[in-house]
Design a protein around this nucleic acid. Structure first.
Lengths: 140, 140
DNA sequence: AGCGAACATGAGAATCATTCTCAATCAGCG
DNA sequence: CGCTGATTGAGAATGATTCTCATGTTCGCT
């Protein structure tokens, strides 16, 4: 589950290219549509496969929406987390060595190894906060 | 999307009860099965509805598996995070005011409001680490 | 206690993202 | 240039979750 493709095909390059060209998070389906608009149609199944390979290889970012959809985006490099606006979907990339260290330390304290973590912060970005009529939100 | 039920029914109590009785994370489908075994069958649709209501009310924990399934568990109280074993599914509840503060501070720095966050740490618990033949794992 | 109306339930259909199937096609090697 | 096995893709299959809506219950009111 997650082998890197051995052969370089037009489709794989097309996917990789469009991810690089646009920098935002999109679902597999949306990338598939974008590819078609771009004049380089790629089968949906192939888009999924390629996206998965790239994600496994750590070359792209994956994000999970509340609805259970997976969003993909070109990933410059390194490990980082995201700050996502729940209204407009805008994302800010943040690095957090601090949290990184905390995660590993905590896990280790409980005897866990091969630790991996997920940190996601969602909120309302400034523009959206203004636009939104202060919904009664109950956070922790 | 997430009104608290106004009427108290046998089904809702049954769901709430079994969640309390067993303390582990299970998918809606599994709880549905457990309920049937317990002699208090509740329709699958109702299990989903009730679980959702409880989650919205903050009375139970929700966890997302890599496969996209939602897992639910009784939640004693307060906000906390989880350390999950990727092999056996064992979970350890951890409180992390530290990370909490970091999340809010970071979000605020970018002008975000109504902040919410997700922090999950997955790894191999001690027992499983021993049992597992040291798979070549690449972490951050 | 007895009614009635509104809300809750549940069986099965509907949705929808993602994965699988498998024959046709293509990349790279000799 | 011809092979051979990896890759592709259209559509079917999967599987969790949600929706539909007729029926069953709960609760307020008298």
């Amino acid at each position: 589950m997650g082998e890197k493709p051995r052969r370089l095909t037009r489709q794989q390059q097309a996917v990789s290219d469009i991810l690089d060209a646009r920098g935002d998070f999109r679902s597999a389906q949306e990338w598939h549509a974008a590819l078609k608009d771009d004049g380089s149609p790629v089968g949906l199944a192939t888009v999924y496969r390629t996206l998965q390979s790239l994600a496994d290889a750590g070359r792209i970012d994956v994000l999970r929406t509340a609805a259970g959809e997976s969003l993909y985006r070109a990933c410059s490099a390194g490990h980082h987390h995201h700050l996502v606006c729940r209204e407009c979907g805008r994302t800010v990339e943040i690095s957090a060595g601090e949290v990184e260290r905390w995660a590993v330390a905590t896990a280790t304290a409980y005897g866990f190894t091969a630790v991996d973590h997920t940190v996601e912060i969602v909120g309302c970005c400034a523009p959206c906060s203004v636009r939104t009529p202060e919904g009664a939100r109950e956070d922790a």
